[in-house]
Design a protein around this nucleic acid. Sequence first.
DNA 1: CTGAAAGCGCTTACAG
DNA 2: CTGAAAGCGCTTACAG
Lengths: 341, 341
Amino acid sequence: MKSNKVTIRDLAKALGVSTTLVSFAMSDSPKKYRVSDEMIAKIRAKAKEMDYQPNNAARSLRSGKSNTIGVILSDISNRFFADITRCIEDQASQNGYTVLVGSTDEKPERLANLIKVFQNKGVDGLIIVPCEGAESSISELVASGFPLVLIDRSFDNINVSSVTLNNIKATSLAVNELVASGYRKIAFVSYKTSLTNILDREMGYRKAMRLNDLKEHICANEIDYSSINNELLSLLPKLIKQGTEALIFSTNRLAIEALIVIQSMGMTVPEDVAFIGFDGSETFAFNLYPKGITYIKQPIEQFGYEAFNLLVANIIAGGKTDIVNIELNPELVVKESSKKS
Amino acid sequence: MKSNKVTIRDLAKALGVSTTLVSFAMSDSPKKYRVSDEMIAKIRAKAKEMDYQPNNAARSLRSGKSNTIGVILSDISNRFFADITRCIEDQASQNGYTVLVGSTDEKPERLANLIKVFQNKGVDGLIIVPCEGAESSISELVASGFPLVLIDRSFDNINVSSVTLNNIKATSLAVNELVASGYRKIAFVSYKTSLTNILDREMGYRKAMRLNDLKEHICANEIDYSSINNELLSLLPKLIKQGTEALIFSTNRLAIEALIVIQSMGMTVPEDVAFIGFDGSETFAFNLYPKGITYIKQPIEQFGYEAFNLLVANIIAGGKTDIVNIELNPELVVKESSKKS
DNA sequence: CTGAAAGCGCTTACAG
DNA sequence: CTGAAAGCGCTTACAG
């Protein structure tokens, strides 16, 4: 930004051509303007030689686009979202975009605020992991026609592009693996929520249990996410005493906390109870566990890749593309914790 | 950015004043231009009424400053750095700055690249957690006069502003606590590195051990950070067999992995060995541990706060402020793991 | 295939 | 205390 920065005009002067030509040659698709190949090569070579760096502010001001997108997470300290953000950033930087990241900490007021802040900063579009209670903010945004893609979670009653996991399939895979290992008394440990993705995981469990003619044991309403540790300390022994042979968890955090609680009770997996976790991105605990933990793996890279591309298509179309809902496939990573010992 | 956006000119027209006056009134310090109080109030009220949003691109282009800073971390998946980044972002947004974040994954080539990328994007300054081997990139940056603040780690031979922990004090505190609890055979578990902050932690341990007339047991060179788990699995039993009564760890990650390894060996803390971890930001493992883990706590908020303010002072001064090195105080959070059982 | 020129929305010397 | 005007560095119709 210093005054000694090389500009398009300096380049033009040095080459004896117009700034127009330089601008064309430096653009992403110079062919569109039918600039000769030699000219493109000549200009770009000179640009490199003089270390020309386009001025983003000028570009944005003129084009009305910032080439910046905003990513609003529900919780940046969740490794799963942090990893997805990383993938989005990779995609973005390869495509000349800059990413602004914010976190709502699962608070809908903060979401409304962040949307405004990012729009004021001139982002061209938003990728959002909505929290509970975000419906009004999201539907307002959709109504305004602002380019938007939801990720991980969506709302049944809002028509908006999204990239989500096939959650039904995810827990079905887990149930079937345990059944194949010979387990019958399989419990699903979740928590009180209205998030569709978590509820879908419960539905996947129910469906698979029914198809296997097994009785469901759902511990969804007994857990308050803000005091997991204590809840699990009282819940897990009860479940095991009642004859539960295997546990499936609806989230990564729940699974990790449960694993630590189980260890601290002096029990082991799968000897005392079989165990399938959800998502292995924060796997240091899983990997270190001597026997290895079976878990449902989400395609993190695909989340980032698809969301970014969907958003950019949306931006380029001026917010007028069709609604696209992409559902990604989970994968079961099988280790010892789901096998009969 | 749409064409229906309200501009400074629309405001001026609506109020019957010049754009100059509007610009003055909307600036951070309108008093500087001796605009009358009523006028400021009138203009700002109208701005609010018409929902005026200043165009950042125009502002940047004109002023030559982007009001954007870059934060380059050594490892974004480390919760300690993620938390600091969060604090920097809070500070930044309160002061009208936007933060761009990148991670080098401890690779010096990536650092050199990210510095370039961020400069091309027009950041006004950089906050960097340098990785090993970053000396050349950092000293080049310092020589160019670009506003820069290092965080967490610094280099003895480079004269650059920084915010670091008083690492000597950190491990001294730990040693003294264990000694006060009656332990004598205290080992320091670290890893092979040239990072000054880690080496300082070793020095703090050495110093405190000497002052207490105790013999040092340092396990620094025996651990390769990329295969901690296996290393610890062989190291820890050996140490304990040799009579080590207490362990101090030089990093958060090392401590967490060690705790899990200790558990998996069927041992408990502090019955089999006393334990002091480094930093509790990723404390879910610590908190869940039944007895509670004593750890050295770093002042995360202060890291973010001081680094941001130092950088902004630097930016405003055009990179010509004095070098300032801020050393923050660690705190020992005492739980059961450092007490005689 | 190439050039002259307008204009994006601001800030800020300069002049009153 | 206030206004007219230049200009930041680009992109892009328009005209050849």
